[in-house]
């Protein structure tokens, strides 16, 4: 049973403002015409509808959209955790069919192994990849220092605060030295203050690692603050509406939110999301 919206005779609709520029040619991530369909009790639901995008090496790209717009599904497909219904995800030219250790992921929940100390949680990846124990622990110790949790190296996850746990989760993902780091609303479960600190930490961290980062969030401020580009997604079915370049100078800090360029960009985003939200809402009303 092919869903109605996936008729092959329909013209392909790529991201409208996407520039097929130099960035696209040296893209490390390529999502090509990706569709993902879920089986639901009411029939099949299109979570991601023919999305194409490219992320250049070293770029920080955020995907913003209302909840349920398929942004997490899109990210899971990039991680190899979700099978495409149509199209494909290419990471460094290779199709993603299952998770690969050079693609790291940080989830909304830390998902730390509760039976392992902070140090061993971080060392898990290198160990799983067959590195000797001493080397894995050395990598872990370096990362623990970077996230400022040296005092808690031998603590178990449940004794840490939510923000600390998420820092450990980020360090654990970095331990395999991934070329791409995927982050699925990593600060979504944290309180406002912790969240602001974590954002600043991530900005600093980014200067020190050279991973390409794809960051999913529903918070526009967060997206603009952190990213080089913001992709705005629409809901039902999930599509990319707009691809916005964030040309604010780096290094940035949360002080940026008072600048005029920032505010103009934010207003653009909000207008787009508001009109899109209204459309999606009305569509939902008509359906029901």
């Amino acid at each position: 049973m092919t869903p109605r919206l996936l008729r092959p005779d329909q013209p392909l609709r790529l991201v409208d403002t996407y520039p097929p520029s130099a960035a696209a040619r040296q893209a490390i991530i390529r999502v090509e015409d990706l569709s993902i369909v879920f089986d639901a009790p009411s029939g099949q639901v299109i979570a991601v509808d023919r999305v194409s995008l490219a992320v250049a090496q070293g770029e920080f790209v955020s995907i913003v959209g209302p909840s349920g717009c398929g942004k997490s599904t899109l990210l899971n497909a990039m991680a190899g955790l979700e099978r495409p219904f149509g199209g494909q995800v290419l990471m460094a030219g290779e199709a993603m069919r299952k998770p690969r250790p050079e693609i790291g992921m940080v989830f909304q929940q830390p998902h730390l192994f509760p039976w392992k100390s902070v140090r061993r949680n971080i060392a898990h990846g290198p160990r799983a990849l067959g590195k000797p124990k001493a080397e894995a622990l050395r990598i872990a110790d370096g990362l623990i220092e970077m996230i400022g949790l040296t005092r808690f190296a031998s603590a178990y996850p449940h004794t840490l605060s939510g923000g600390m746990q998420q820092r450990v989760a980020i360090a654990r993902a970095l331990a395999n030295q991934p070329s791409v780091l995927l982050m699925d609303e990593p600060f979504g479960a944290l309180d406002a203050q912790t969240r602001a600190v974590m954002q600043d930490n991530l900005l600093e961290l980014r200067e020190r690692i050279n991973a390409t980062i794809v960051f999913v969030t529903h918070d526009i401020d967060e997206a603009i603050l952190l990213s080089d580009r913001v992709l705005i997604m629409s809901a039902g079915p999930g599509r990319i509406l707009r691809d916005l370049q964030v040309s604010l100078p780096r290094p940035r800090s949360s002080a940026i939110v008072a600048e005029a360029a920032y505010l103009a960009l934010k207003r653009d985003c909000l207008d787009l999301i508001r009109s899109e939200g209204r459309r999606a809402f009305e569509q939902m009303e008509i359906k029901t």
Binding site: L81, P101, M105, H111, W115, H124, A128
Partner: peptide, 26 residues
Amino acid sequence: VDHGLIRAAQMLGTPQSQMLWEIVLL
């Protein structure tokens, strides 16, 4: 078993045997 733990372990390259006798068992 928390599905998130299994996904996290998958993303870190955990081999199938370690997945069964460490992540799933514990």
